[in-house]
Design a protein around this nucleic acid. Structure first.
Length: 260
DNA sequence: TAAGATGTGCCTGTTACCTCA
DNA sequence: TTTGAGGTAACAGGCACATCT
């Protein structure tokens, strides 16, 4: 049970006071997706449990479909001042850069004026801690998620997203490495293939000479010096080898020397 | 016990924002 | 000052699995 879940629970309870149909709709919706719409606006504000705003009630009464996102935004608007509450130094590469480290999560940082989502950059410290945690274990359990969220003053959802993105980056890098290895392997094999082809061509170019040798072997069935004929024994391999070696020696040097 | 509903975590692809050259 | 590229937080949709009814 993460922070988001807690938020959602409180939401459900709170809204159920006056917006039963909404809660039902929420439950029927596809899991977290709708929930995100709520939590995006940081509905952790306890005041939510008091019930929906006037707008919500009105919309409900009128039977209108309520834009949950906007509705939630209006509910939490009062706490949006918490959005960036702490300034923190953050050195990035060349020079010092001031960064806002979020303290209370993305409260209303997308108060939906224009539907823009503002993106927060994690501080060096936050990134380092997350990175460290990722090194130990690349996945999260709810406890760990909550602990990290608490430690870093982030929402559990942010921690979760960070780990997801981090895993994706790792996988992407690994894929690039694998791709590089495969590329090299392919190059090596291509080169080897080329070499073998070349060798085959060379061997083929020797074919006429080989035919000549065969013909010569046919006429020279008996070694003039040792008076041995090419082995015609039981073992064909022996015969072949004997024939071949004998033939080769016959052609390459003096017959007598070959048989000695 | 089987089957459908629901919750949750993760993956993959995309979007939107931010930073920097 | 503008702009395009790259990095990345956040989102969306889908899948697998566990649990509940």
């Amino acid at each position: 049970m993460g922070f988001d879940d807690i938020c959602n629970t409180s939401l459900g309870l709170g809204l159920s006071l006056g917006l039963g149909c909404l809660v039902k709709q929420e439950k029927l919706s596809h899991r977290r997706k709708k929930k995100r719409s709520w939590t995006r606006n940081d509905l952790s504000c306890p005041s939510l449990t008091l019930g929906p705003s006037e707008d919500a009630r009105k919309a409900h009464a009128d039977g209108e479909s309520i834009d949950l996102h906007r509705q939630a935004s209006s509910v939490t608007a009062m706490s949006s001042f918490l959005k960036y509450s702490v300034k923190k130094e953050r050195d990035s590469g060349g020079g010092a850069e001031v960064e806002f480290e979020k303290v209370s999560s993305r409260v209303g940082d997308e108060d939906d004026e224009g539907g823009h989502r503002k993106k927060l950059r994690l501080s060096k410290r936050q990134s380092a801690i997350l990175e460290d945690s990722f090194k130990h274990h690349s996945t999260l359990n709810p406890k760990k998620k909550q602990a990290l969220a608490d430690q870093l003053n982030l929402r559990p959802r942010q921690v979760e997203v960070w780990f997801q993105n981090r895993r994706a980056r790792t996988k992407l890098k690994q894929t690039e490495v694998d791709c590089e290895l495969l590329k090299k392997s392919c190059e090596t094999l291509t080169e080897e293939n080329r070499r073998l082809h070349k060798e085959l061509q060379e061997l083929k170019s020797w074919k006429p000479l080989a035919s000549y040798r065969m013909a010569a072997a046919a006429t020279l069935t008996m070694c003039p010096s040792c008076e041995r004929v090419a082995n015609g024994g039981e073992d064909p391999s022996d015969h072949k080898i004997g024939t071949k070696s004998h033939l080769f020696n016959t052609l390459s040097s003096h017959p007598s020397a070959a048989c000695s």
